[in-house]
């Protein structure tokens, strides 16, 4: 009986809830959508109003208490610095950080994703490799940057590698969880129409894993950004970067510039979150 699909051979066909699509929802996109887009004018007004109140409230308190800039920068001054110096100074450093982050994440995430897809097909290999992935996930890769600097000099590569090492295992861990979900009934459906193993992967296993892959990308990219900026603070490249600027400005007590860099980093983080939020909404909303 050579053509019997091997993955179905020895399982008693059951359709328990944990095997059907209802049962696996390790992530809940409704949690992410709790920050729904505001609808009424009242809602929008309240949200904008609160933000402005915080911004100008802090400004007013700092002016009223006559707090010096080296203790806490005034929001208006930070915005002014951001406006004046973004083009001449910050844009360059933003690009340096983005380059390290994007290159590292692209390398780490693709290796992590491919490894996860391969390894979950072989339970034995998974057992052997899992501890190392766990070690890589829990070890802060920032710690490696000074060592890599020593070995590789003052270019971007030490940071790219650190970002890849930080984000890759995160992507892999989550993707593997996704690929490990096997829905016997859906595989049987595809097999009954003569699907090949590759078709099963492309049309059943991958879409089934996609919500977890997206979660992995989101968590991995935030870890990657953290590592890029942390690495720049510890051992920057010649080109600098946002992390290098943080150390530089704080050492000179230039808190307006320091605040501006913080604002840029926060915007970067929010941008990553929003990007994956929309990717999740588009490609994984079926699981909500």
């Amino acid at each position: 009986m050579s053509n019997i699909p091997s993955e179905l051979r020895d399982d008693i066909p059951t359709f328990d809830d944990q095997q059907s699509s209802k049962g696996h929802g390790p992530i809940d996109w409704t949690g992410l959508t709790s920050m729904r887009t505001a609808k009424s004018a009242l809602e929008i007004g309240t949200i904008v109003g609160l933000a402005l109140a915080i911004f100008f409230g802090v400004e007013a308190i700092l002016r009223w208490t006559d707090t010096p800039t080296y203790v806490f920068p005034k929001p208006m001054d930070v915005v002014g610095v951001l406006w004046d110096q973004f083009g001449p100074v910050f844009a360059h450093h933003l690009w340096v950080t983005m380059y390290e982050f994007l290159a590292g994440f692209a390398i780490g995430a693709s290796i992590g994703l491919v490894l996860a897809a391969l390894i979950t097909q072989k339970p034995f290999a998974e057992k052997v490799i899992a501890p190392y992935i766990l070690i890589m996930v829990v070890t802060p890769m920032i710690a490696l940057v000074p060592f890599l600097r020593l070995k590789m000099g003052f270019g971007s590569w030490p940071l790219i590698i650190a970002v890849a090492l930080a984000s890759g295992p995160m992507v892999m861990l989550n993707s593997a969880t996704g690929f490990r979900r096997t829905d016997l009934a859906k595989i049987a459906l595809a097999r009954s129409y003569g699907a090949s193993t590759f078709q099963i992967f492309r049309k059943i296993r991958f879409p089934l894993a996609l919500p977890m892959i997206i979660v992995g990308f989101m968590v991995g990219s935030i870890f990657g950004l953290l590592t890029a900026i942390g690495g720049e603070m510890v051992a920057p490249s010649e080109a600098g970067g946002l992390g290098e600027r943080l150390v530089y400005y704080s050492s000179l007590a230039r808190m307006n510039e320091f605040g501006a860099v913080i604002a840029i980093i926060a915007a970067l983080g929010v941008g990553i979150y929003v990007l994956f939020y929309f990717i999740g909404k588009r490609w994984a909303s079926w699981e909500a």
């Binding site: 009986m1 359709f15 009934a185 459906l189 009954s192 003569g194 049309k203």
Partner: peptide, 21 residues
Amino acid sequence: VDGPRPQQTGMIFQDANLLPW
């Protein structure tokens, strides 16, 4: 019968078994 025969046989499963995505 030594494997699926997609040209001859059609199967309808419990719980519809539609692909949710």
